[in-house]
Design a binder for these strands. Sequence first.
DNA 1: GTCTATATTGGGATAGAC
DNA 2: GTCTATCCCAATATAGAC
Lengths: 194, 194
Amino acid sequence: MAVGTRDRIMDAALRLFVEQGVAATPVTAIEAASGLSPGSGSFYRHFGNKQDLLTAVVEREMAKARKDPATQVSAARPGELPADVLARQIRADLDFLRDLEPLMIVLMWERGRAPEVAGRVQEVMVERGIELGVADLLTSVPAAAVADDPAAAAGVMMSAVVGYFLNVHYFGSEPAGVGADRFATTLARLLTGR
Amino acid sequence: MAVGTRDRIMDAALRLFVEQGVAATPVTAIEAASGLSPGSGSFYRHFGNKQDLLTAVVEREMAKARKDPATQVSAARPGELPADVLARQIRADLDFLRDLEPLMIVLMWERGRAPEVAGRVQEVMVERGIELGVADLLTSVPAAAVADDPAAAAGVMMSAVVGYFLNVHYFGSEPAGVGADRFATTLARLLTGR
DNA sequence: GTCTATATTGGGATAGAC
DNA sequence: GTCTATCCCAATATAGAC
């Protein structure tokens, strides 16, 4: 990884973009963080401009996150409780979000100026949210509130997962000191009515 | 409202900051949007620099949100079900977040460069979350998952509310098409085990 | 493929007339 | 308190030597 200068530039740029935003990160700073001489145009031997770099970084990060086996949910074991299956699901979703974390932060910053790219990420998220979490939720859960309005329960679950993730990122600490495992277990129990 | 030039500058600046971020908003653009001549330094008759303006805007918006009676929860009516009280609580929290929406967006963008200001907003949020939502939750809810780990349940509730709000903001639509009332009702029912 | 050097633009900020 | 005019610097991007 990060063998060539092009990759080093992408690594350094993503880090800087996350820390201070794209607009506030000058090309000179990217050069310096990539081991190039700041102010030299050496950056431009690798990318046409900062926008091209952003596009390339987005492509690379999304490809990485989709391939990562750690964010795939393993199949339910026979006899496993619905609450436990759901808790594993939720932890996998949090892992998936953590994989995409730098990208999400950058795109939330840049959504106004790169709407088509933000749209693609949204598709990946929604696709995953719908296909995995919601499908499991609708089939295996007997709780009254879920049965009455499964779509709303799915919305609550997705909101809670995304909200937990963003709480941790933006405030730098877990909400009410609750770690990922406790969060996943409690949310799963609430959804399954146990 | 917005009688003097100073107020018009703050209104215009907040709008532009939300749309494109602080770093990407030149003072020239703020002048233009405030009815001043762009490029003239007239802005500097009212604020020392852009950072001073940001600070003033944050102060003003936080003072407004704290005073707004629409975001205060009315007392529980006698005989009202815990789930209904909690649902009203959740709707009030969403109103509170919507009141603070522009400020939150700007501060999430700027958190790296204005950490002390972001810290103050966090305090207000946490204070409100703890004092209102969590206190009610702990006292009035008999659900097993809540009784077993009240702090985790409170974390789930806060995460869900914040996540719902941010989903709506960033993706421009309600998660799974679920509106605020349905969301609040479902989350309250899940938490109260009804 | 990186360097030094530089042209050029855009935005931050000030001076002084009105 | 707003204007015109201007200074200054930071950032984008290019040219050409090595």
